[in-house]
Simulated assay, not measured.
Amino acid sequence: MNQPILLGAENVNQLSWGAINGCEAASLLEGLHYQGAALGVSYGQFLLAMPIAQDGNPYHGFGGSPFKNEPGKFEAIFARPLLRWGNQFGSLCDLSGADPSWLYDEICRGNPVITYVTVHFATPQWEQYPFGRVPVNNHCVLLDGVSKHQVHVSDPIDGQYWLDRVKFEKIYLSRRMAAVVYK
């Protein structure tokens, strides 16, 4: 990769909307807006449309509330239910399990990638829940740029920045959960 690629997706700050657990919805909306979809939908409206898992399982829908922490809940929505929801507004494809190079290839094709990582790209802090072992410092960002040694993320907590690819890949590879947003 000779030249850095930066798609320039918008940044949605989840905290400014009071959505302390709203990173997946923010990252999804950033990607949809970048591809020209759901343009008339605000982040607040989008959060209200998010599918909630009645059983609290993030593999079924959002497991709790994006606005508060609830004891015994894991406040997140994982890739498959996120894809089902997102495909109501645009076109998404599951990249879970993909090698990081696949994510970078999508960026080079002009498609942002929703990636599941950890808050501040810290070491995952694993805990066991009824639905499986997951990092309690779960986070989701939109990957919208790549260069030889860095990736660019639109992070719903920390804003937009370039990050060392090695650091990104270490955290991404701990879970390998991602989805691409197509035009």
Rank of each mutant, 00 (worst) to 15 (best):
V12A: 01
L83D: 06
Q14F: 00
D144G: 10
P58C: 01
Q125K: 11
Y59A: 02
K167F: 00
T123L: 07
G90Y: 11
A179F: 03
A79F: 00
C23G: 06
Q160N: 09
A9C: 14
N69K: 08
E10S: 10
N111Y: 13
Y161C: 07
F121L: 14
D94N: 11
I5R: 15
G36S: 08
D94E: 01
F131T: 01
E24T: 12
C140I: 11
N21L: 06
L143M: 11
I157N: 10
Q54K: 12
G145R: 15
D55H: 04
N138G: 02
K148E: 13
W102I: 15
P100G: 05
K68L: 03
G97C: 05
A9L: 05
P51E: 01
F46W: 13
P112T: 14
W102S: 14
V151F: 11
D99Q: 13
G110E: 04
G132I: 00
E30C: 12
P66Y: 04
G90I: 12
L7I: 11
P135W: 03
R176M: 02
F121M: 10
Q35R: 15
Y104R: 14
N11H: 08
W162F: 06
T115R: 07
R165C: 08
H33V: 09
Y129N: 01
I114N: 07
V151W: 13
D164C: 10
W102C: 13
E10I: 11
I107T: 11
E106I: 04
G8S: 08
P71W: 07
G145A: 07
K170C: 02
Q160W: 00
V153L: 14
P156W: 13
W85F: 15
L143R: 15
V41R: 13
S101N: 12
E24S: 05
I157D: 08
R109L: 09
H33P: 08
P51G: 00
E70W: 11
Q3W: 07
S16L: 11
N69P: 03
G72D: 06
G8I: 13
A178Q: 08
P130Y: 02
G40V: 00
T118K: 07
F67P: 04
Q45K: 15
H149T: 15
P135N: 06
T118G: 05
G63N: 07
Q35N: 09
W85M: 05
L15M: 04
K73P: 00
